[in-house]
Design a protein around this nucleic acid. Structure first.
Lengths: 239, 239
DNA sequence: TCCGAGTGGATGCGTCGTATCCGCTTTATC
DNA sequence: GATAAAGCGGATACGACGCATCCACTCGGA
């Protein structure tokens, strides 16, 4: 049967043959969304995305019922990457190295993709898939931690949930320092690793220097951007 | 010039004798504001505050030109506390103990007062006084760090700015875990301290256990609350 | 050529927070 | 107790912002 047989549209289960221009626009939208989510986080509006894709808002809504749908279809892949990275870490012959590599990769990804970072550390509203996946990964991180302890490099008092919390901690640094010193998170991850290592003296020196004194105000101000309801300003009425 | 030149602190203006009921209301507003800011952060609206104080919004605006003014007049005192705590830490005969005590007190305060936490870690818009005070404190934290290094308990690669960043990191944990495990921050502060200590083996064990596995989702969801623009939901129009 | 799938973006709707306005109440004073 | 001014309250305007729709149109494909 040589039916249409075209390459099935990425996500869609081969139901509807999309018109040529429609398919092209769908791609444009997906690309624009990926880029904007990565750059500015999940807060971007569908209007932003439409405009950036060079299409009208209506076109976006025609394809995706709402932002959630768009997000879900976009990040499926990214989550697979994370799962893969975690599996690789568990399989690493050197458990400590596996752990460190996992965290490193994790934050490199989060540094690159703001939207993904938000999905990982913030579990926006309804996105069920995210929490489901997290549940799926928990047993793996249990293993990762257990193996690292066994190797004697990780302290006994460390818990797998600490790996979740460290994502919040380092994630916040990442956000705050993003524009000033995008690599700063490495320093604080290293400090954390020292703090959980049973043999900190064997660890390499801190990979990056401290944030410069005069940049602290900017870091703090940027941090604000991630805080909600902190606005103190006025709306400036007429006149 | 020797014009009156009184102290002009917002709280005690030697200018206008406020009418009895007005003065009482001013107090009510200040009290309500203090409480709400502490509980829910700087995001509370002046309407909230007015209502909570049992007065009308108009009354609030009559006394305070805008939210910023209210905030500034409220937190003056809190900032003095912080400065005092830092000075005490620098004066501590045991520099490491001083450092630890300072951080501990710092986060205990932040745990208690959400609004203050936001002021410290987020520098909202215009509040000049905040950044001015931070500049004032920086030299002190330089000393704090220098002395701790000298004592041999703090690693040489630690920088005073790391004390600012740790506030962001621990602050984010504090926020995320506030409702689930309000003391969790102590654990992560302890890990951080191990990471910067030259003799981690001399430190006490982690003060609190890990966050329970099944609470992680809630922690993550709460963390969301502090994130801006993460909303994915709909506005649900008429049906 | 023709027609329906596809388009775009102006627009309606909802929400939220700030700040004002003005008829009414309370206080201070005589 | 009378009276003016200070003070009050809260409904409401105003602006912003984001979501989602609607509909006159364009364009792809048979």
């Amino acid at each position: 049967m040589t039916t249409n047989a075209s390459i099935q549209v990425l996500d869609t289960p081969g139901e509807k043959p999309l018109r040529k221009d429609a398919e092209r626009n769908r791609r444009l939208i997906l690309d624009a969304a990926r880029e904007l989510f990565a750059q500015r986080g999940l807060g971007v509006t569908l209007n932003d995305i439409a405009h950036h894709a060079g299409v009208g808002v209506g076109t976006v809504y025609r394809r995706f019922p709402d932002k959630t749908a768009l997000i879900e279809s976009l990040f499926e892949e990214s989550f697979q990457e994370i799962a893969d990275r975690l599996r690789a870490a568990v399989a690493d012959p050197d458990p400590w190295h596996g752990l460190v590599t996992f965290l490193d990769g994790q934050f490199e990804t989060q540094a690159r993709d703001q939207g993904l970072k938000e999905l990982i550390t913030a579990t926006p509203d309804g996105i069920a898939r995210v929490s489901r996946l997290r549940d799926e990964l928990l047993p793996l991180s249990d293993q990762l931690v257990a193996r690292a302890k066994q190797s004697g490099m990780l302290r006994e008092d460390v818990d797998p949930t600490d790996l979740a919390i460290v994502q919040i901690m380092i994630g916040s640094v990442l956000d705050a320092a993003r524009e000033v010193e995008p690599e700063a998170w490495r320093r604080y991850l290293a400090i954390f690793l020292r703090g959980v290592s049973a043999r900190p003296e064997e660890l390499p020196p801190l990979p990056v220097g401290p944030i410069r004194n005069d940049q602290i105000p900017r870091v703090m101000t940027n941090h604000k951007l991630a805080a909600r309801g902190t606005e103190t300003g006025s709306t400036s009425r007429s006149g």
